[in-house]
Design a protein around this nucleic acid. Sequence first.
RNA 1: CGGGGCAUGGCUCAGUUUGGUAGAGCACCUGGCUUGGGACCAGGGGGUCGCAGGUUCGAAUCCUGCUGCUCCGACCA
Length: 568
Amino acid sequence: MRTTQLYAPTLRETPAEAEVVSQKLMLRAGMIRKAAGGIYTYLPLAWRTLKKIEQIIREEMDEAGGQEISMPIVQPSELWKETGRWAVYGEEMFRLKDRHDREFCLGPTHEEMVTSLVRDEVRSYKQLPLMLYQIQNKYRDEIRPRFGLMRGREFIMQDLYSFDKDEAGLNVSYQKMYDAYSRIFTRCGLQFRPVEADNGAIGGGHSHEFTVLADAGESNIVYCTACDYAASDEKAELKPVEAAAEEMQPLETIATPGMKTIELVAESLHVPFEKTIKAVAFQNEKDEVVLAFVRGDHDVNEVKLQNLTGALTLRMADDAAIQAVGGVPGFMSPIGIKKGTQIVVDATVMGMYNAVAGANAMDAHYKNVNPKRDFIEVTAADIRLIKDGDPCPHCGAPVKMTRGIEAGQVFTLGTKYTEALHATFLDENGKEKPLVMGCYGIGVSRTMAAAIEQNNDEQGIIWPRAIAPFEVVVVPVNAKVPEQLALAETIYAALKGAGVDVLLDDRKERAGVKFKDADLIGYPVRITVGPKAVEENIIEVRTRRTGNTQNFTPDDYLDEVLALLKTL
RNA sequence: CGGGGCAUGGCUCAGUUUGGUAGAGCACCUGGCUUGGGACCAGGGGGUCGCAGGUUCGAAUCCUGCUGCUCCGACCA
């Protein structure tokens, strides 16, 4: 490929809309252009990278026993109504009607589609296990699309669905996918971590997220400094902390005018955070109030609370709702709340003695609160959000937190969808059973963005070789000098002949322009052909990541470049 | 959904307060000159100032409505 033939309009200035590094760089490098909020056109450079990522995925999926198919983007509402998700999915689903007024959606995912496909054709355990996958556009009408390709409304996803005859088979399929995903991200040259994850709305059994480590990431993960435990912060479990036992003092009301935050209370009463109890009020999708209580220095893990209470969604409760159940916003405690209200107290709180909590009265708190004695009709459970330094649930060593981008996730689904859609088979005994299902997804376009988030500097992108749009760019310093262009052509042809994905920057631009563009787009290797090359037979090979330049001769540069590429 | 902000040539923005015939830089075209890190000189093309109303002799500028984009808001109990 030659730059004069390549549609890659680079920008010197960053468009105002760009928020995150990957988005800025992809816009500037001429890789993407925005069509609407969260919807982008992929230009040739981006498309090449996406195809490379997809190719790696295809190879690993096929190796693991997957078969590629392509399912419709436009999906009829009937199937979604069968599983109940037509209602559950809510406004996140793009919906449309055809001319006959029949309802469709743009597929946000394909469980329904693939299950209906399989239920009509799979009759016998002899046809199992079965793994089908596709790489395809997905549509989710996000409330607030942002961060470029990281949270788009249209995005490319690889999704595989496994069907087994039993749990044991599912576990084998799950492990195969887990391993395949690990290989995929490794081959893409990314630093990542598989972490235990919450299943979320998709339901089912256990799950892992594949998180690409990057500070710009939206998800927090924790990992143990001693053992191999790693989990998303939403998932990470915590054992209750038992405070040192004290004699329980009688409950006492104290005036705390205007002290609506736990910080104010702790400070003015000279009580450590560890002796305070914080209240957080939520409302679920049915507008029922759910009250959560954690220690003053802890935070509520909404996902845990959601799973525990069976809520589909949780949001902050408004004051009126809190008052309706007998709570006083800013001064709340489980004591004196209307009967029948859902009250969840973190297990650690239950182990506290003589603590400070709201008094459920304006401008007042209780002293000497002893949850074991004073909290009645509450649910005690782990609802706390893990933080840096907390003990690992496996070995107790302190955990560390880091940020990452969720690029892939694997789930066991069990029979949730196959039962709803009556996808059954006959087992060895002729007995009808629902297929046991797993689903596995990689955000392909998001992986590209994640790769950039993880690999960039002030000058631009630094592609890992495996997913770079081109592996090498050959730059004649002055394309108007025939000798330089001729030598560049020779090198270009030689690399191409050796199977290297190479670009020749044959534009009649000044050298600086071509260098800047090369750095911005981030080709792993640049070969500069200038006067030195023509007159002294020196071929300069520059590594984008390190900025190091090595000089080779026309005889040995080819082998050296091939060897260098293997390390990038 | 609630609250801000923005909308002027392909991009980044000025001009709006105080109405008076639309600007800069970059990009683009032509010529010259230049070619190892986003040159320079000269000439040139390109804008219904988001849309629709209104006020006015006159509106990018003031008023009303709409649309689009964008940012913030989900641990405050």
